[in-house]
Design a protein around this nucleic acid. Structure first.
Length: 577
RNA sequence: GGCCCCGUAGCUCAAUUGGAAGAGCAGUCGCCUUCUAAGCGACCGGUUGCAGGUUCGAACCCUGUCGGGGCUACCA
């Protein structure tokens, strides 16, 4: 089904052509304030200006709006069309028409959200944990936001390839391996040990030239494929994987072994990549290093060190070439920290100049830094970052306390399950609901709040829908076939829900375009708000006959819309909480 | 020095392409014998950092300025 906005777009466009013989964007938008109507066209003001210039006499925008209005063939879509302010054309949709629209999507599992007509292959690069380091709260954003973006684009009907570009290669491994050799404790190394080793080896590396030398030799041996080095490296990677895999599982993030293509994967291709870039004239020698100069940037992107050895720019370029040529990507999306903005700009520019991104959209979806409550980059009092695992533990613990207080009669298993959905959901929503571009404040209490604009608020709306269904079953009220129920939108509460449900496709496309899941959060929050109001003001099971049937159908559609939306955010939605 | 991002209610954040500033939290006051009160209803809260400019119209675009953060040649 076409979105309401695009249906109105067509009608307004036709009216503008009929009235003035111009084909212009009618600038149809959802009204910000309900008092104006539901949708509006903002084109009359600009058009009046254009006509004034054409005819060199003053044209009143309100008169233009009137003429457009006169040509509008809205049929029974609108209950009321009015002109306000400088020339806004406001449309209030008719409840009968909305009810029919809603009925037409009732049997559709996509709730009317159109699948794309031109599916693309889209690579989404996200998460990218570093080997030998524990994931901390700072890793949440890339992981959660990237995962949601991937889900949304997949839902649009595109072919999504998730890529986890793990930091599993580079000079630090020589360092770590050298340190492990001296420790002789690598047999039982856990992630905490590895982190500890990492810190210690870094300190030793910085202070001890002999150790630096040893580390470099290890890297060379590793890169040459030496069996001992490789075995140690594999153990380190394995151990790290044992750490982050359960976290992905816990977060319900769709990244598995099949999505892993770490830096090491590209290692064998780096020589060729650099040579290629040189022969194409994209890269050149500078101060002994191989550099790519990009217009607008003072310093070049370095891809190979003066003494040999590849830098991560080379790896990123190799990844682009691989994704374009081998994965046949049409679009490559990077969900990474905004501090890498310059790096990615340079990398993208180089890839385009090398001809590796012809017809490929390279998109950087940066996110801001997590700040502490003092406004400084987030650290704990001891100077460490908060471990992701600790945050998730605390979230589930607090959620369990609440669910136990509210629903102590449920089995322990069931309560744990709900606590998981609520706790993890709250953490994810706290992150997803903010525009990714801004730096944002980390606060235990805000992140773990279950009141107001939070995941549990959305989950609770879903739970209330199912509470009604449970009660209906126990009263042996036949919910009827949802697809055949006649929907009646008698109260403003019901009409509001209908209008919101019908916007799902529009919001999905917005998120797919802007790569900002917070729009979906806001949409679902509004829908949940409308449902909570409906729940308080419109009795479902106490009503009778066609009203009850209609309200049950509306509940069903709301529940499914919330379910689909929460799925796209990667947030669970239990039927009880 | 150069370049990039951010500045909106007491706090945390929204505002689709430039189109009529809005939520949550905190505070005050109501609403549970009722489909889950993790909820609903109401009140309170604004010179969108500041000054110019462009525009019919600016939180949004441009210039300047102040404040915060980041990147800036051999880590990733």
């Amino acid at each position: 089904m076409l979105t309401i906005a695009s249906q109105l777009d067509k009608i307004f466009r036709a009216a503008m052509t009929a009235a003035f013989g111009v084909d212009a964007d009618p600038l149809v938008a959802v009204s910000q304030n309900e008092k104006f109507g539901d949708y509006q066209s903002n084109a009359a003001m600009g058009l009046a200006k254009l006509l004034s210039e054409k005819t060199s006499q003053k044209t009143n925008p309100r008169a233009v709006a009137e003429q457009i209005k006169a040509k509008l063939e809205l049929g029974d879509i609108a209950q009321e069309v009015s002109i306000a302010g400088p020339g806004f054309i406001n449309v209030r949709l008719s409840p009968q028409w909305l009810a029919r629209q809603l009925q037409s999507i009732a049997g559709d599992e996509r709730l009317g959200a159109e699948k794309t007509a031109g599916p693309l292959t889209v690579v989404v690069d996200y998460s990218g944990p570093n080997v030998a380091k524990q994931m901390h709260v700072g890793h949440l954003r890339s992981t959660i936001i990237g995962d949601s973006i991937a889900r949304v684009i997949e839902f649009q009907g595109h072919d999504v390839i998730r890529q986890n570009h793990i930091g599993d290669w580079g000079t630090q491994f020589g360092m770590l391996i050298a340190f492990l050799k001296t420790q002789g404790r690598e047999q039982n190394a856990q992630i905490e040990d590895l982190e500890d080793f990492y810190r210690k080896s870094k300190a030793k590396f910085d202070a001890n030239p002999a150790f630096q030398d040893e580390a470099r030799k290890n890297v060379v041996r590793l890169q040459a494929g030496d069996a001992e080095e490789l075995a140690l490296w594999k153990r380190i990677v394995e151990e790290t994987r044992r750490h982050y895999e359960p976290i992905y599982k816990r977060l319900d993030v769709k990244l598995g072994l099949e999505n892993e293509r770490g830096e090491s994967f590209y290692n064998p291709t780096l020589r060729g990549v650099v040579d290629d870039l040189k022969s194409k004239g994209v890269a050149r020698e500078s101060d002994g290093a191989i550099a790519i100069f990009v217009e607008g940037f003072e310093n070049p992107l370095l891809i190979e060190k003066s003494g040999g050895g590849f830098l991560y720019g080379a790896t990123d370029l190799a990844a682009i070439r691989f994704r374009a040529e081998q994965l046949h990507a049409d679009r490559i999306i990077y969900t990474h920290d905004s501090r890498q903005a310059q790096h990615f700009n340079q990398v993208f520019d180089a890839a385009r100049r090398a001809g590796w991104a012809d017809g490929v959209a390279l998109e950087y979806a940066p996110f801001g830094t997590m700040l502490g409550e003092d406004g400084k980059p987030f650290k704990t009092r001891s100077g460490d970052t908060v471990k992701l695992k600790e945050l998730l533990d605390e979230a589930e613990e607090r959620a369990l306390a609440v669910v136990t207080a509210k629903n102590g009669e449920l089995t322990a298993d069931h309560r744990n399950q709900i606590a998981h959905a609520v706790g993890i959901g709250a953490v994810k929503y706290a992150d997803l609901s903010k525009d990714r571009i801004s730096d944002y404040m980390f606060s235990w209490d805000k992140m773990l709040s279950f009141d107001g604009n939070t995941a549990p608020y959305l989950q609770n709306a879903y739970v209330r829908v199912h509470g009604i269904f449970r009660k209906a079953r126990s009263l042996e009220i036949n919910r009827g076939a949802v697809t055949s129920a006649t929907i009646l939108l008698q109260s403003p509460h019901e009409a509001a829900i209908a209008k919101q449900i019908l916007r799902l496709g529009e919001i999905v496309n917005l998120v797919g375009r802007e790569l900002k899941p917070h729009h979906l959060c806001a949409y679902l929050y509004d829908l949940a708000t409308q449902f909570h109001a409906f729940f308080e003001h419109c009795p479902v099971l106490k009503s009778e006959g066609s009203i009850r049937e209609s309200r049950l159908a509306l509940c069903e559609l709301t529940g499914r819309t919330l379910g689909v939306g929460l799925d796209l955010l990667g947030i669970e939605h239990p039927e009880q909480m």
